[in-house]
Amino acid sequence: MNLKLKVWRQDNAEDDGRFEYFEALDISPDMSFLEMLDVVNEGIISDGDEAIAFDSDCREGICGTCSMVINGVPHGGQKGTTACQLHMRHFNDGDTIVIEPWRATAFPVHRDLIVDRSSFDRIQRSGGFISVRTGSVPDANATPVAKENSDLAMDAAQCIGCGACVAACKNASAMLFVAAKVSHLSLMPQGQPERNRRALAMVNQMDEEGFGNCSVNGSCEAVCPKEISLDFIARMNREYGRALLKKGCS
């Protein structure tokens, strides 16, 4: 099939950016979306022009590197699917596809479709860990974890940190991401000693990075490739309230 692409191009963070148009010809329905872009890029490079820059790495939906908004929807709108696992069979011959980077003040554009998500790293760094030194730990079975809690923690821990939640949110809120991280660790017994500190620190860092606030629209949940539930946001709110009462008063 043949497609028209309307792609965001931006030379660097300071550039204003613009849309450019490309043709994607002879596209096979078996291609992944990124392979389609690879094909277009091969053509662009052969013409001596600069390829469309986009992030991708594992291309199997787990590393969270790929990040593009396809026709207004982060990752293209197939349930539980990252852009790298989106296949062209979901498009029709003659379609025009609009491709844009994640849009959020906290995710400045590096180039074309590549954005800077280091704000996520900084949130994690502010408290998204359990402070254990290598070696100074008890036997793994010395701390039993109720299967229900462990499973729920795993649901949250599945987050691949791609940032689609932020990209989809009309407020560019990072709540789903932070909630998944806070929930994962607060559900494990190992995470209890730092539970309150962690919630306060991560929320403060989230605010500092310039993400917006949650309006409970659920766009984040809708586009999350790991289908992480809004419930975790409620859980984080609860965690935060608890932390405020316990720590905030001191």
Binding site: G72, I97, R103
Partner: peptide
């Protein structure tokens, strides 16, 4: 402030 741009492709 957190989201200054709207998506064209919506």
């Amino acid at each position: 402030r957190a989201r200054k741009f709207q998506y064209e492709g919506t």
